[in-house]
Each structure stands twice: as structure tokens, then as C-alpha cells.
Design a protein around this nucleic acid. Structure first.
Lengths: 249, 249
DNA sequence: TCAATAGTGTCTTTCAGACACTATAAA
DNA sequence: TTTATAGTGTCTGAAAGACACTATTGA
């Protein structure tokens, strides 16, 4: 018997260690990649070219590359880059879903990540595991699509986390391009929340916090020009001490 | 070649699927189990009886049992129960740590859980993979112990999540026994935060929120008796709209 | 000058902090 | 009556909502 207890040193133990002796779950990474498309919050879905769940829409994701990836965040960055060409998104681990039933191949675990990217940065690309790729309005994807595996649940979790963090952080700055106005920013918050925000308090909140800073440029149109702002260093996820309460009625 | 693309149906694909054909990471669950011991926040550590990291202190945890466990939460519940005998703790998934280097056996992933339990409920027990088991003050465990693998980092993450959630949730109710006074609850908050909280606003916050309710009983001593409270249904994790700010100086 | 959007002044409301106060038991 | 702890009254301050107001541009 290969009883572990009999080895005299860690080195000896490791020399005899064979990972394939054990039943272990399949482990993957899946991504909820969000962006704004024409004033709607959309999520990136891919149509699977291979079994299992061949032909179904799914969140982008897949196996960890044990050679290339040094850690889980690198896997997530790699997956995101493969699909969108984006290199420096806002990326956050949302949660890990593991069960006997979620994948027909057997016990499996997937680590879910949320990515926020500006629509300006995107260059979508297919791959041999992807038959199609599309931006789908989030609510529609959650409610009307029958996604592969437990991806409806994962997507709902990502979306809920995003909606709840919008109430007490500056996260939506990550959905905007390099330069934006306060009105752009407020619109982004409102799209995600689905409610209106009071202009004065929103502006005070953002400016007092220091999460954004003036670029010195102005956006001109057929009206009063608007100051342009950028995200401050460390402004990608500023935490406020109070949540946005919304209209009082 | 066993090219996936050649199968005609998912059924056929699955019949030929062999998980051992792929290099996949080792996947485990680790637990940050917290409890109050004599007015200190402590974490449960075990001393490993086997390789790897034999003889080192570590967070309790281990492999998913692909037969017994239906999902990750069940693995976490099982691990907690094996060590403490506790069945219904507050349990929350904190994050997943995966990298090439964190375990000498190779690429590995661990899903970290936070558990909060009342010191009254505990019956510790050893097992054949555990040489010793102990409650250690958290700060000491993080700063002075050299834990196995990346468990110092995991523990720090659990502790930080707990400290930050104490500012805007009712989480500490889960560290108290069935019945407790408002002073007990305030002490628990203060121990975790490491600062004093103003009595009046603390009481108003807790009572107005409805996260606790009177039991009708009183605790008597050589002074004015105190009302006893219990956690309301769904009070285990009530969210407040403002954080505890702490002393203003 | 007008339309359109940017941006402000100021009042109310809510809830946390400060701190002194009162209440009620045992000894 | 004293001591100890439980529990309250009431003020201040910070930040959010409401909403009407002013500002600045192009056309």
C-alpha cells in the first residue's frame, strides 16, 4: 500500500505522488464580461462549438492552462483577452460554483469572474471552440436564454453583485472610456441600477470622494460644454460609507 | 485522434470522455472557522499529521468527496462538522485561491469558506489526518504562525472580510449563543473591530433594523437586569445602509 | 434670443456620534 | 443607600434626496 504516512520526507512523498490516483473534480474559469452597448448593459456570450452543451450559448471560459497560467487571475485575464482583445479590464472574482450535477462530465468546479470593459476597447474574435459570439442585454440573457451548464445562475450572481456594488462603490467608471462627463457617469449608474439618481447629490458624492479627476478638457456640443473627467489612480473601486438610497417618493 | 468534434451526440461524447486524459489542478476546500474565546476572536487551526506540510499548523480543509458531497457548500459543512461537531453555522464562501506554486504537489485550487460559530456549540475532535487542533487568536495566527501552503494569506483574507462586513452587517450575531444581551452583542462587535462603538447609536441601529428580537427573558446579576435577545429569522446577515463610522475624536 | 444641457444653492431628512442623563436590580 | 450595569433624551454633524435655480454654449 502507498500509505502516505510511511514516507520519511516531503521530498520522498512528492516523488511518489500521483494526482491521477485520486478522483478530483474538473476545474474551470468562467467570465461574466459586461459592457455598455447603446445605453444597455450587455454581457458577452459565446456559442459553444464542441460537446458538452454543443450549440448552446454560454459564458466565455474554460480550462486552466497549467503551463501558461501562474494563477487563477491569469487564467481569467487570458480568457478575456482571447475573446475581446482587452488587456486591462476591471476584473473581480465573484464566486465559485461546484457540484456533482452542473456538468454532465461529472463533479466540477468553476471559478466565476466579473469583468467590466469600455465598449471602445473591444475587438471580438472567434476561436475553434466558439461558433458565434455576441453582446446580449443582461436581463434578456438571464431570463430568456437557456445557457449551458449552470451559467444562468452564474450570470445572475455576477449581475446581482454588480448591481449591489454600484450602490456603494465607483465601479461603473470601468465601463466608460478614458474621458467622460459627470452626466455620462450618472447615466451609467442609472442604467445599471434601473432607477434615477438625484443629480446634485450624485455629483457631490463623486467629486468629494476623489475617485475621478478633471482632465482639463471639455466636451462641446450645441449647448454648454461639459468638463471631462478620468478615473483617478485607485478610483476603479472607491468605497463610499453610505449607499445610494434612490428616490424617496 | 479522439477529437471532440467528431462525436455525433453529447451521449457519445460523454461515453468516451476520460477526465484523466487532462492535466487538471488539485481542488480542495479550506475553512476559516471563527469563534470567541474569553473575549478574543480566535480561529481554529489543525496540525497536519501527513505530507505535504506535515507537522505544520493549517486551516482545516481537504478534498471534496465526490461521492458524498453534492456541492461545495456540503463539503464545507462536512469539514466543519468533522472538526467541531457544529451543524448549523454561519457559512460564507470568501474566495478561491489557485496557483501553480501554492501546493508542492502542483497546480492547485482551494475554495475558502468563513464559518462563525458560538463557543457554546463546540466539541472539537481529532482525526487521522490531524495531529493537534487548537483555537488561536486571529491576529497571532496571521502574524506569528507560519501556516501550511498559502494559509496565512487565506486567513488574512477571511479576517479582513469579516472585519469589513462587521461595519455594515449584523454578522457578529452568529458568534453569540442562542440568547444574548445588547451589551454582549456590542462587545462582540467591538472585539472584532478593535474600537469602541457608541452605545446609543449601536442599540438604535440593531433594534430599528429588526435583526434581533426580544426573547422575553432577562439576565439577572447584581445590577439592573438586561433584556435577552435572539437573532431574528433572516437576521444572520442583515445589511445596513450606512457603515459604523467609529469615534470622531 | 432660444434650446439644450451643465452645473449650483439651499432646504429637508436620516442616521451616526457625543454625552449626560435616568432606571432597576442585588447587597 | 450604594454600586453596577441597563437603558434613554437630546444635541450636533455629515451626507443623501428634493427641487428650483443659474450658467454657458451653438444655432
Amino acid at each position: 500500500m502507498n500509505k502516505e504516512e510511511n514516507y520519511q520526507s516531503e521530498k520522498e512523498f512528492l516523488e511518489h505522488y500521483d494526482i491521477h490516483r485520486f478522483d478530483i473534480p474538473l476545474t474551470t474559469v468562467d467570465m461574466g464580461i459586461f459592457s455598455l452597448r447603446e445605453d444597455e448593459l450587455c454581457v458577452l456570450l459565446i456559442k459553444r462549438a464542441n460537446f458538452p452543451a454543443k450549440g448552446k450559448w454560454a459564458l466565455p471560459g474554460g480550462f486552466i492552462d497549467l503551463k501558461k497560467d501562474n494563477n487563477l487571475d491569469e487564467t481569467a485575464h487570458r480568457k478575456l483577452n482571447e475573446k475581446t482583445g482587452v488587456n486591462t479590464p476591471y476584473l473581480e472574482q465573484i464566486g465559485t460554483f461546484g457540484s456533482k450535477k452542473r456538468d454532465p462530465r461529472g463533479w466540477s468546479v468553476t471559478v466565476a469572474y466579473l469583468a467590466l470593459i469600455s465598449s471602445e476597447d473591444i475587438g471580438l474574435s472567434l476561436s475553434k471552440t466558439t461558433e458565434d459570439i455576441a453582446w446580449v442585454p443582461v436581463e434578456e440573457a438571464i431570463e430568456k436564454y437557456k445557457l449551458a451548464f449552470d451559467h444562468n445562475e452564474i450570470l445572475r450572481t455576477c449581475h446581482e453583485r454588480l448591481k449591489s456594488k454600484v450602490l456603494y462603490t465607483s465601479l461603473p467608471v470601468n465601463l466608460l472610456p478614458e474621458e467622460f462627463t459627470l452626466t455620462d457617469l450618472q447615466n451609467t449608474f442609472e442604467i445599471i441600477l434601473g432607477t434615477e439618481i438625484e443629480k446634485k447629490s450624485f455629483r457631490k458624492r463623486m467629486l468629494d470622494s476623489g475617485c475621478i479627476e478633471e482632465t482639463g478638457n471639455m466636451r462641446r456640443g450645441s449647448n454648454r460644454p461639459a468638463k471631462l473627467y478620468r478615473t483617478s489612480p485607485n478610483g476603479e473601486q472607491f468605497f463610499f460609507t453610505r449607499i445610494i438610497e434612490g428616490p424617496r417618493n
